[in-house]
Nucleic acid binder design. Structure first.
Lengths: 159, 159
DNA sequence: ACTGTTGAAGCATATTCATGCCGTTCCGCC
DNA sequence: GGCGGAACGGCATGAATATGCTTCAACAGT
């Protein structure tokens, strides 16, 4: 019995949620709902509550009030740092231009992902530089860049 | 005027909360209230809500349901800094080449400015990577780079 | 085609949390 | 002693979130 194929809309919506939460300060599900509305998704608060649960997104108190943030990768142990294992949790999006790839992660995920990247065997990747939530990769060629972007996009998709 | 000395009970109670949350799986404030009761504190849910805020304790979704955990980074400079507001203070110079823009800031200003940059709506900016006083931006095109350099130069001018 | 199973998502509602307002207490200072 | 400000925390209530139940649609197996 194959587990029912996930409706594409759900996956895309959750992807959008991750991006929004990585990019903005969001303090309530209603606020998130409005932002999604502007981007073409019209769902109820119930659905968002479930999405946030699935994505392990928590609401944490900050100086500016409550904010949703992706909860740190619960893994973190030396073993658990293969790209395939962590990327789905931390990935936000990838894009590239020229010889460069830019990978956005959830806040704080940059170092972890870059570390995993560096352990991958990759001859067409000259190196990576990681910030808090952004990783820059320098590729040997534009072809390599395209390959890498595609691969990362695939790995980053949550099952 | 000395800020009022904190009632000892509050400090102790919050200490106890931290310990409880480190030791057990707690999923609601009522649950926490019961545990505190057994240890001799009798407070209302309101108080716990405030304590949890003060302690930056978040409620995160786990496989076993919602659980309170001390949030990772209590640091968070997180000033609500708009680019226009901070750039004049921190800007040193900008320049660019190809798809890249390099922005120099005063020492230590890199993260702050990059953070502000990331909050800007910008579709032609793939991402930013920040060091201590240098920020690298990857643009989607050379035209975008020119625009961005010009804009930053303007914003950075001290009035 | 028919039926059973499963995931997705809405609705209504229960649960849980945040907070405005207010009384009390504790100081420091006149 | 009386006054004023600040911290604390209760109460009541509004805000926000979680969830039981239901329907619908997409399959899978017969």
């Amino acid at each position: 019995m194959e587990p029912h194929p996930v409706t594409p809309s759900k996956r895309d919506r959750q992807q959008a949620i991750l991006e929004l939460i990585g990019a903005r300060e969001i303090g309530s599900q209603e606020e998130l709902r409005q932002l999604l509305l502007k981007r073409g998704w019209d769902v109820t608060q119930s659905t968002l509550s479930r999405d946030l649960r699935d994505l392990r997104i928590a609401r944490v108190p900050t100086d500016q009030g409550l904010r949703y943030v992706v909860s740190e990768a619960p893994n973190e142990d030396a073993v658990r740092t293969s790209l395939a294992a962590i990327l789905p949790q931390l990935f936000v999006r990838v894009d590239g231009v020229g010889h460069l790839v830019v990978l956005k992660t959830v806040p704080g995920g940059g170092q972890t992902v870059a570390h995993a990247l560096d352990k991958e065997p990759a001859t067409d990747l000259l190196g990576t530089i990681a910030g808090d939530d952004t990783i820059l990769m320098i590729c040997r060629s534009e072809q390599a860049r395209e390959r890498i972007v595609r691969r990362l996009a695939t790995l980053g998709k949550r099952s």
